[in-house]
Amino acid sequence: MSDTTNEEKMDLAPIETPFKRIWADFCQNKIALAALIVLLIIVCIALFAPWIAPTNPYDLASVSILDGKLPPGSESLSGVTYVLGTDGAGRGLLSSIFYGLRISLGVGVMSALVALVFGAIMGLAAAYYGGRVDTIIMRIVDIQLSFPAILVALILLAALGKGVDKIIIALVIVQWAYYARTVRASALVERSKEYVEAATCLALSDRRILLRHLLPNCLPPLIVIGTVQTAHAISLEATLSFLGVGLPITEPSLGLLISNGFEYMMSGKYWISFFPGIALLVTIVSINLVGDQLRDVLNPRLQK
């Protein structure tokens, strides 16, 4: 990644770096900018959860079942005020959400990154080599994309079982096809351009042409798909965890927090499911808004 940005900078440095231009364009949409700020705050919360959470929900010494199911804003027996209330076991919801964001974002970002790398390699290979390689890879992509993501994930998790590593594997397998298809489409366009011909004439190695010439030019659509798919991965993980086939209860992501509140909801204790859901919603919406704006900014056809 750092190599490619350097290369781009060398080309355009005297006038205006692409990063500066993209940033200026991005800032024109106030909603997207606000979404980016919200997203950064969420990422910070996820990164620094153990230091900023008011209580540690998984420290058995400080959690008491007597504090269970307290409504938002109430004070516990030990004198701690729970802004968003507590869940059935007496864990503070605000702190649980902070820790949950950590797991949800971690799983989402990790699976999207691995899927991006794997899908991009497959897509590039399909476009560059063509012929049989292309046919086989794209046939697999077609077949996989003809099944809904949640179904593929369900089949995989039925086979793999529960666990952080397993859900990441399942999400990667569900998502790589989107990246492969996107990269192949833009690589096919790029491949027929003169600069690739020039590179081929210079007798550069396949690997060099693929990674240093084709890949950087396929990056914009890849980044857009990457953001949207990260949001998708987070939502899918929450859904699967809610269904009880995703993460084990030792890794309480937002989906599991919502699922825990389900049983208390019938007695009117809405907050246990409500607040983690809001956190999930804000995360997904802000990623989607940032992704939308990135799509507009990175699309060369929309630029004046």
Binding site: S235, A238, I258, G261, F262, S273, G277, L280
Partner: peptide, 13 residues
């Protein structure tokens, strides 16, 4: 953007 299962819970709520 809304996760389906959460909307379902809120509808019940």
């Amino acid at each position: 953007s809304l996760p389906t299962f959460w909307v379902g819970l809120m509808l019940i709520m």
